[in-house]
């Protein structure tokens, strides 16, 4: 099977520090891949390189290739903005736009891009909110501020906002780290449903979460890829001792 997304010898530098070293990975379509590792191992850095968020950090330098459907997103001819429309991202802390209503937040990807058509907007908002199982909770107050929602609801709203622009890949950067267990469970169930339609890459420091939600798991340590395999294998029979040490809690 041809992978949806592929990293080839990815290297990322910040100034003089070498944060990610020669990482190569493949993400098959309609799967969930978890990237795990101790803090500072470069897992978020890898994730952010997949939709070119490092372009905004002047000191960051990314080399190697990131292939989306076999096209390198770091090719000189490629527009980072177009990349981000195909590869969406959900952040660690829910970040709805504070000045916008729930409705406007969901549709913000369109509104900010200036494409507006009232009836299509209504449809997109409804289907996106249903997609993240938030519709029933907020359908009566779509015009109220997004800031009034609970943390878990805000994060689901952010996911709705991301799916609304119909990306092909969704990147999640520790999406549950600020949430309580019940809200976390809802997001995890959601991730499982999302993979029917999207390719999901999730960074997490929570190994149980990785084991629960992902099909594949990559273990990163000090900027290097130590092991990449089917999740079940990583958690039951890792090939590398460093992986085993980490998942059994001997370090990190």
């Amino acid at each position: 099977m041809n992978p949806k997304l592929k990293l080839e010898q990815l290297n990322i530098h910040f100034g003089s520090s070498h944060a990610v070293k020669d990482v190569s990975l493949e993400f098959p379509a309609n799967t969930v891949t978890a990237i795990i590792g101790p803090s500072g191992c470069g897992k978020s850095t890898v994730l952010r390189s997949i939709n070119r968020m490092h372009d905004l950090t002047p000191s960051a330098r990314v080399t190697g290739r990131v292939l989306l459907d076999d096209a390198d997103i770091y090719d000189r001819k490629v527009d980072p903005v177009a990349v981000r429309r195909r590869i969406g991202m959900v952040f660690q802390k829910a970040n709805p736009f504070p000045a916008m209503s729930i409705y406007d937040n969901v549709i913000s990807g369109y509104k900010l891009n200036g494409r507006v058509n009232k009836s299509t907007m209504d449809e997109i908002v409804e289907s996106s909110l249903k997609r993240v199982a938030l519709w029933d909770e907020v359908k009566d107050r779509l015009k109220s501020s997004a800031m009034a929602l609970s943390g878990g609801q805000q994060q689901r709203l952010c996911i709705a906002r991301t799916v609304a622009v119909q990306p092909e890949v969704i990147l999640m950067d520790e999406p549950c780290s600020a949430l309580d267990p019940i809200a976390t469970l809802k997001i995890e169930e959601l991730i499982d449903e999302l993979k029917e339609q999207y390719t999901v890459v999730i960074v997490t420091h929570n190994m149980q979460q990785a084991a629960r939600v992902s099909d594949f798991t990559a273990f990163l340590y000090l900027g290097e890829l130590i092991e990449f395999d089917v999740t079940k294998k990583i958690f039951t029979n890792p090939a590398q001792t460093r992986t085993e040490d980490y998942i059994t809690g001997r370090f990190g």
């Binding site: 905004l56 177009a82 991202m89 913000s108 990807g109 900010l112 906002r161």
Partner: peptide, 9 residues
């Protein structure tokens, strides 16, 4: 970041 990640220029 949220806006840029949505593919907004």
């Amino acid at each position: 970041e949220a806006s840029l990640a949505l593919g907004v220029p």
